[in-house]
Design a protein around this nucleic acid. Structure first.
Lengths: 152, 152
DNA sequence: TTATTATATGTGCATCCTTGCATATTATAG
DNA sequence: CTATAATATGCAAGGATGCACATATAATAA
């Protein structure tokens, strides 16, 4: 009963439903979530953690990234029904679609996705060096070419 | 999205989950809910109303009673999955079982089930007159005989 | 070592939720 | 009409929640 209340509380928030929508699409890092939903970093982190805490998500760390995804192993029992309810309710929802669209354009490892500090002024050169570095590490970075183009 | 959040919020409360448990068993009046859960009248009323408001329940009035039950008509779509999640999560739960047991013994039309006023002191004679009255009205009152026994 | 960057978290504030208590409302009986 | 009984509701107190802001933590690079 306690657990069910916790799970339901975790889901009964628009921000977190939108996050679930992203994770139904694919694994995401905090950085991608904040870009796709256009919310602050602390907000993305906290809400992801709430869903994690409630038992919906699993966490995998890769370098600096915290990669969250639906925890298929725990999603038996009533969790399964809850997920289905969310998926069903969100299908065709305009916000949900838009978020997914923005997720496609979201980038990992983009300096400005960090703290939203004023006067960030990260030079393109530094960014490109960073991207090369990532590629050297064998990190899957689908669109680094486009990224390079857009910042040079 | 808004509606889903509302539905989830309505469910994410222990009192209301316990109420859903009762209504999965059968239609109940406010009075029965307060007895089965052993909670105050205003608390029962308000929480029933919250579930009603969120679209889970339908309301039927019979005399003084407000009879709430699951609204099968609205329970398509994601509502259905939510109900299944609740039912699944509650099966075997000790509190839920106990509530159902107490529901069996709950009585409609018992004077003391009202306001819990101090110095209620309703006389058995008055209660029995009330029960006869009800029977004359053709109101289905399964256990009025037992009731009469217990108060005379 | 220091600098950078993704993420996590302490704090304060505003808002909303839930409840008990008292009272209002409503239907019925007399 | 008045009284009774089931339910609804106004109100205030206490608690929970969500957020922004600033800062801390941790991994990596130089």
């Amino acid at each position: 009963m306690r657990d069910l209340v916790k799970a339901l509380k975790a889901l009964s928030d628009e921000t977190r439903l939108r996050i679930m929508n992203l994770l139904l699409e694919r694994e995401c890092c905090v950085c991608e979530v904040m870009q796709a939903l256009n919310i602050s970093q602390s907000r993305a982190s906290r809400n992801l953690n709430a869903l994690y805490d409630a038992g919906f998500l699993k966490l995998r760390r890769q370098g600096l990234w915290a990669l969250y995804s639906l925890d298929e192993e725990r999603l038996g029992g009533y969790y399964w029904h809850l997920i289905r309810a969310v998926a069903k309710a969100l299908e065709g929802n305009e916000t949900a679609l838009q978020d997914r669209r923005r997720l496609k354009n979201a980038r990992r490892a983009v300096p400005s996705c960090g703290m939203r500090r004023a006067n960030q002024n990260t030079s393109p050169i530094r960014l490109i060096r960073h991207l090369y570095r990532l590629r050297r590490q064998g990190i899957d970075f689908k669109n680094w070419r486009a990224l390079r183009r857009s910042t040079s």
